[in-house]
Design a protein around this nucleic acid. Structure first.
Lengths: 123, 123
DNA sequence: CTAAATGTTCAATGAACGTTGAACTAACGC
DNA sequence: GCGTTAGTTCAACGTTCATTGAACATTTAG
């Protein structure tokens, strides 16, 4: 029984929701790290430096519901990716400017996230 | 006794605060209208289509405290301007992208704000 | 001086936010 | 099957948010 996580369609991504979702230090750090990681997906576990398991789960859900990241299952893990193309389509130039400033905001320690475990199948 | 309103310096403008301040429909409408008005200052009264006097006062204070707008006295009125240069300096490309999307979001009625009364002295 | 115009402040309200720890679920490894 | 890994859900808590109406403050106009 494959369960699907709710993601807004590209057209349903709303600017106030996106701005609200990004208006939090933890969530800005998450997208800064995701962006620095290129196109590669990351797991929730790689963000535990930023907060408890529960807190990360909460923030990841907020980012997903706002349409900023995509989350898919990979075994017991979740693989997170930035919805770069969808965001660029809806709000041209927005994500790049936020990511640039958000990355500049972070301390080196924050950007130095732990590697993912070796179990990835989706890659 | 000239009273000064608190504005963060350019360097003290913080990205999470800016994003939080813009994550509200009313405040996005205010900056969309301000941006469409060019460099000209506008008064709080010109935004009463967006909410009560109290509500506008509240939202304007939020935008000011976040460093998004500058507010100065002009008689009994307040003159509002976007802090374009300061924002561009801190977060290059950010304001433009938000303004573009925020303007596109508005209905024509919202963008068709009332003219300011003829009392302006500061210009 | 008085009255009008323009905003601000205050207290109250209900909703949403972010964090916590405990309990739970789902999938993998052996 | 059994335990481990990875993450979610839930209830509880205190905080901040957005709105309202009433009262107040300040400056201009006459």
């Amino acid at each position: 029984m494959t369960e699907y996580l709710d993601h807004p369609t590209a057209e349903d991504i709303a600017l106030p929701a996106v701005l609200t979702a990004l208006g939090d230090e933890t969530r800005l750090a998450i997208i800064a790290i995701l962006a620095r990681n290129g196109e590669k997906a990351m797991t929730c576990g790689q963000f535990l430096q930023l907060g408890s398991k529960t807190a990360i789960s909460y923030h990841v859900a907020k980012l997903r519901e706002a349409g900023i990241i995509h989350v898919r299952r990979d075994g017991t893990r979740r693989l997170l990716t930035l919805r770069r193309d969808d965001l660029e389509h809806r709000f041209p130039g927005f994500l790049d400017s936020v990511v640039t400033s958000a990355v500049a905001m972070q301390t080196p320690e924050v950007l130095d996230y732990p590697a993912a475990p070796e179990t990835a199948r989706g890659m």
